[in-house]
């Protein structure tokens, strides 16, 4: 399979502090790639470099190349990049002043879509894709904030999917959820890879093992090892990886 996203020697800073260094990594098309590592290893920073969200933080900067289907995203307008590469965050962040419907339609409306039929269709499809439709189909006018935590996170996934991105980035999407809500989202991630390239950052090694084809392990801002998930967990090449997955630190 081809690499949908490829980072070439990506380094990122917060002010003078270097968070990640020289990361070169491929993310395959229509597959789930996981990035694991202990807190502060730079995995969230890396994923935020993939859709130019890193630079929205004051004094943050990035060096290196991120190629989306061969095209450097740092040569494209950030707004275009983020429409092609959607993102879901650690804490579910629906717009609380908008209804469920408006939340999902928000991205399309930003793109200038005004046609009610097309909006309706997109909202329906996105909510179905996010496995939320059955739970909310009778309450689309309710506030997005009225849902449970797990539903809110799936709403955010639906909102990200509604603009039909090529890639979906997920930054610890289950960190704030209970096991049942987590299981639902993991099932969902599994389904999504049919249509999307998914990159997921996770704290939870079992989660990476369950959903991802490929896993990358990061430590202190460096990429330590990357490989097929099973191989990485069963026969890690690096001692650091082995120490981490066997629970000696992290």
């Amino acid at each position: 399979m081809a690499a949908k996203i490829r980072t070439e020697k990506v380094s990122a800073w917060y002010g003078p502090k270097k968070a990640i260094e020289d990361i070169t990594l491929d993310f395959e098309e229509q597959a789930v790639s996981a990035i694991i590592g202990p807190s502060g290893c730079g995995k969230s920073t890396l994923i935020r470099c993939l859709n130019r969200m890193h630079e929205t933080i004051p004094k943050a900067r990035v060096e290196g190349k991120v190629l989306l289907s061969g095209e450097d995203i740092y040569g494209l307008p950030a707004v275009t990049v983020r429409r092609r590469i959607g993102m879901v965050f650690q804490k579910a962040n629906p717009f609380p002043t908008m209804s469920i419907y408006e939340n999902v339609a928000a991205g399309l409306r930003l793109n200038g879509e005004r046609n009610r039929d097309r909006l309706d269709t997109a909202v329906l499809e996105s909510l179905k894709q996010a496995a939320l439709w059955d739970e909310v189909k009778d309450s689309l006018e309710k506030s997005g904030a009225s849902l449970s935590g797990g539903q809110q996170q799936r709403l955010c996934i639906a909102r990200a999917l509604a603009v039909r991105p090529e890639v979906l980035l997920m930054d610890e999407p289950c960190a704030a959820l209970d096991p049942i809500a987590t299981a639902k989202i993991e099932d969902l991630i599994f389904d999504l890879k049919k249509d999307y390239t998914v990159v997921i950052v996770t704290h939870n090694m079992q989660q990476a093992a369950r959903v991802a084809e490929t896993t990358a392990f990061m430590y202190l801002g460096h990429l330590i090892e990357v490989g097929p998930t099973r191989e990485l967990f069963e026969r890690p090449k690096e001692t650091l990886t082995e120490s981490y997955i066997t629970g000696r630190f992290g």
């Binding site: 429409r83 717009f95 990200a160």
Partner: peptide, 28 residues
């Protein structure tokens, strides 16, 4: 909260759109 701004930005909103959709509405 910043996560509201990030929500809009990650949908491809410009700065003004982010302010309008995520910030002003939230703070109305």
């Amino acid at each position: 909260p910043d996560n509201q701004r990030e929500a809009a930005l990650s949908l491809g909103a410009t700065r003004w759109e982010t302010t309008r959709v995520a910030v002003l509405r939230y703070a109305r």
